[in-house]
């Protein structure tokens, strides 16, 4: 199978370029396996990867124009020649490795931790199965960055718009019956930028390798805000 792979090493290259590789495929092979095979051919080829089963979120890349997690993308689903590039809109560190620090910084801005004001009980804080069900579709995020780096609003205002990933996380805590800081969370999302740059383009939904729906989460936050404001 033929691959065209984005290459750039700031130590040696003035300009990025695309390099052609050919990889022998086998039944059930994933894109990550192919990238590892390419790395065997050329050990200077660099990309992040770890668990190989779609839970660590390391190996998000742009394949044939869409953001995917390499380890759970079967080669059989890809059109030849497979074009592999780094995530769009992020500074390239080297080859497929991008600088994700702004993405992580936005995550930290939503205070992504459970806030409880009452003293803790001796045992668990009780939560009904129905209340717990509200976290499904929110807590499973693996922070791979496929969504935020496919979001045009995030490309335009990466420093001010929190992006789908961080907003999904914000929603995860707003939806948690144990959390007691909804008011503060809602207040902090106000303003034209942090959340309201979302124009429901929905690239995030298409990109999410875990099948999550950040657009829906953002809509949910807006609905709570409105209910709270009226």
């Amino acid at each position: 199978m033929k691959f065209s792979v984005y290459r750039y090493n700031p130590d040696t290259d003035n300009e990025p370029y695309m390099q052609a590789f050919e990889v022998e495929t086998r039944q059930g092979m994933m894109l990550r396996d192919a990238l590892m095979a390419i790395q065997e051919q050329d050990e200077s080829f660099t990309f992040r990867h770890s668990c190989g089963e779609g839970v660590c979120g390391s190996d998000g890349v742009n394949v044939n124009g869409s953001n995917k997690l390499a380890c759970i993308t079967p080669l059989s689903e890809l059109k030849e020649t497979v074009e592999v590039r780094p995530f769009p809109g992020r500074p390239v560190v080297r080859d497929l490795v991008v600088d994700m620090s702004q993405f992580y910084a936005q995550y930290k801005k939503v205070d992504p931790w459970l806030i409880r004001k009452e003293p803790m009980p001796e045992q668990e804080i009780l939560q009904s199965p129905e209340e717990r069900d509200k976290l499904d579709g929110l807590y499973e995020c693996i922070m791979c960055g496929c969504c935020s780096t496919s979001c045009p609003s995030f490309w335009w205002n990466p420093d001010k718009f929190l992006g789908p990933q961080a907003l999904l996380s914000a929603c995860r805590f707003l939806a948690d019956s144990r959390d007691q800081a909804s008011e503060e969370r809602l207040n902090s999302l106000e303003g034209p930028y942090k959340m309201f740059r979302c124009h429901t383009i929905m690239n995030c939904v298409e990109a999410c390798p875990k099948g999550l729906n950040p657009t829906k989460a953002i809509g949910h936050i807006k609905a709570i805000m409105l209910k709270d404001a009226i």
């Binding site: 992040r48 770890s50 668990c51 089963e53 839970v55 660590c56 979120g57 390391s58 994700m100 992580y104 693996i142 922070m143």
Partner: peptide, 10 residues
């Protein structure tokens, strides 16, 4: 690796 990529995640 970035902390949430540690293998406890699996």
């Amino acid at each position: 690796v970035f902390p949430t990529r540690s293998h406890t995640v699996a």
